[in-house]
Design a protein around this nucleic acid. Structure first.
Length: 554
RNA sequence: GGCCAGUUGGUGAAACGGUUUAACACAUCGCCCUCUCAAGGCGACAUCCACGGGUUCGAAUCCCGUACUGGUCACCA
């Protein structure tokens, strides 16, 4: 019996060779310096903020070098797979504008290097495994879960490194005949890679973000082919990234410790390994200690939660870009007309330890972003948000687009626009008082916060006078002067300064007059610039509201 | 526990052995402006770069040790 017989016994159906695969997936014809990157999620749930972060870097690197960014579905773990999540993942990624050039798209695939779904590539993996088997670089292992557990236990007791390696790798010493016979007998097995490494020896690797690294060689005989007929991650990574011609593997730092395995795997095949960039993980402050953003505990782990709350995707992307390269903020400040697409990203400027997720920073970026939109953009984006998340709001927006735009345009489209919205979802609630029925609701639900120092009669007089002398056809300054004059008639000083100096002569100042009118219009002491509020409301509605307040005041 | 990586303010961070009395941004706090709010303007906020040694004329920056934080040790990715 030879290893060839064994390989034939296990994979009789495999006729292709590694050379055939090389021809099937030839090197890409790209310009010098063009990088091929990939995002390879598992269909085990929603799009994690960390995954968006990683794929953003993938996307940027490929984009910048005029290379290729592709996606691949790593669905070899059939137990943990969540039905439909692969498509969901891709939809969310694309919703953020991180659009791949090729690969897995959820409902279809695109590109010459596919299939891009690992469960569909079983025949490809088998070719390589068979090759390894024939060369004696891999072997079937018949150890059961229980035996492996027992092994680990004794290793722990004896304080030696745990795992399946050298003298502990029992099945590695099985003769080909024995192995052949066991398989013939139908014994379940996995296939392990026969490592040639020594833990005591070091390898030297360059990581694009971490620089020069000295790591111990791998000496574990890792499983490459599971009993369910699918490869493990390590092996799929080897085969896929080789034949899909990936040039830079960008992934989370949790992979750093298995890098020696991957290096050995590539060496054993005589393939050139891709370059690696291990990215820091985004952390969260949890009662003073930092930990990885957790899928279960943190809603911000699901990047869709931000979209659901109404944050603009641009703000989220900018925030992640800031974590990736902190000079992004300064750059965007100097290049206001450009987008993150134009920003020159570099691995060197990347921080090495995981950034704490900073919500207030995101909110600030978001506020700035919304402030810079035109009123039409705000309307469209809010509508887009409402369509997905808020049917009632959608109806309101559709009913009267002009009105919404007028509201939202108050002190917008100027040098220093108002910055009061951090998400699209809060624009309507903050401006609800503009709408008649909402105004009525507010009147019912809340006590009007008039200053108790003023007599009811004074408040009424001011409002009546205001209503009678209302004039719109003037500029803001004139309008305000008129308000001062009106106040004067009722005993209010023209300014705070004058009032403070002559408290005995006045009952208040213009600010108090404005406050009375403001409360009448909005039911609140706070609102945007009164002049604009009045202009948006228009004369009829202003008069109507004053009448309502007078009614309530009795 | 072994191995690996990291450690500059409340947060993100700059600094690449000497223009550092540690940039910039967010947050926070003050003051100013102002009809309120949102902005805007001005200012405060690390006596010092986890700690301890060393190298050097000179260290946040280089070296060693310690501590702490994170990652990883699966037929999961």
């Amino acid at each position: 019996m030879t290893t060839l017989d064994l390989a034939e016994l296990i994979f009789p159906e495999v006729k292709e060779t590694v050379e055939d695969l090389e021809k099937r997936f030839p090197p890409r014809n790209l310009k010098e310096g063009a990088e091929v990157t990939r995002f390879a999620p598992s269909p085990t749930g929603f799009l994690h903020t960390g995954s968006l972060f990683t794929s953003l870097v993938d996307f940027k690197v490929a984009n910048q070098t005029h290379g290729v960014f592709y996606t691949r579905l790593e669905d070899t773990d059939t137990k943990r797979e969540i039905e439909g999540s692969g498509k969901e993942l891709m939809d969310q990624l694309i919703a953020f504008g991180v659009v791949p050039n090729e690969g897995y798209f959820g409902d279809h695939e695109k590109g010459e290097y596919g299939p891009y779904t690992q469960s569909l590539r079983a025949d490809i993996y088998k070719v390589v495994i068979k090759d390894l088997l024939i060369k004696g670089m891999a072997y079937p292992c018949f150890c059961s879960k229980e035996e492996l557990d027992a092994l680990r236990l004794t290793q722990e007791k004896n304080r030696v490194i745990t795992g399946y390696y050298r003298q502990y790798a029992r099945c590695r010493n099985l003769s080909v005949d024995e192995a052949y016979q066991k398989i013939k007998n139908g014994e379940p097995f996995v296939i392990r890679f026969k490592s040639k490494g020594f833990h005591e020896r070091k390898i030297e690797v360059d990581d694009l973000v971490r620089g020069h690294l000295y790591l111990s060689q791998n000496d574990q005989d890792i499983v490459i082919y599971k009993s369910d007929g699918l490869p493990t991650y390590h092996f799929a990574h080897l085969v896929d990234d080789h034949f899909m011609r990936t040039t830079i593997v960008i992934r989370g730092e949790e992979w750093l410790s298995s890098l020696p395995i991957h290096i050995e795997l590539f060496e054993s095949m005589g393939w050139k390994a891709p370059r690696y960039a291990h990215l820091p993980v985004i952390m969260k402050n949890d009662n003073g200690s930092r930990r990885k953003l957790s899928k279960r505990k943190d809603k911000e782990a699901a990047v869709s939660s931000f979209l659901l709350e109404g944050y603009p995707k641009e703000a989220i992307l900018s925030y992640l870009m800031t974590i990736a390269n902190s000079n992004f903020e300064e750059w965007i400040y100097q290049n206001k007309d450009k987008s993150f697409l134009d920003f020159p990203f570099t691995f060197e400027k990347m921080a090495l330890d995981g950034a704490l997720f900073d919500l207030s920073k995101l909110q600030n970026l978001s506020k700035e972003f919304i402030a810079k939109l035109t009123k039409e953009e705000v309307y469209n984006r809010t509508l887009e948000y409402a369509k997905k998340n808020d049917a009632k709001l959608q109806e309101i927006l559709l009913k009267n687009p002009e009105f919404f735009m007028e509201i939202v345009n108050i002190e917008r489209e100027k040098e220093n626009p108002r910055k009061d919205y951090i998400k699209f979802s809060e624009i309507y609630p903050k401006n609800a008082f503009f709408y008649q029925d909402e105004y009525e609701k507010l009147l019912k639900e809340n006590e009007l916060p008039f200053n108790p120092n003023f007599d009811k009669k004074v408040i009424k007089d001011v409002l009546i006078d205001f209503k009678d002398t209302l004039n719109y056809e003037v500029d803001e300054q004139t309008w305000f002067n008129n308000l001062k004059t009106l106040g004067l008639r009722h005993g209010f000083a023209e300014s705070g300064k004058i009032y403070k100096a002559n408290k005995d002569q006045y009952i208040g100042q213009v600010g108090d007059v404005a406050e009375i009118v403001r409360i009448a219009m909005t039911t609140s002491k706070q609102s945007p610039n009164l002049y604009y509020v009045l202009r948006v409301l228009k004369k009829d509605e202003v008069c109507r509201r004053i009448s309502r307040i007078l009614e309530i005041l009795g």
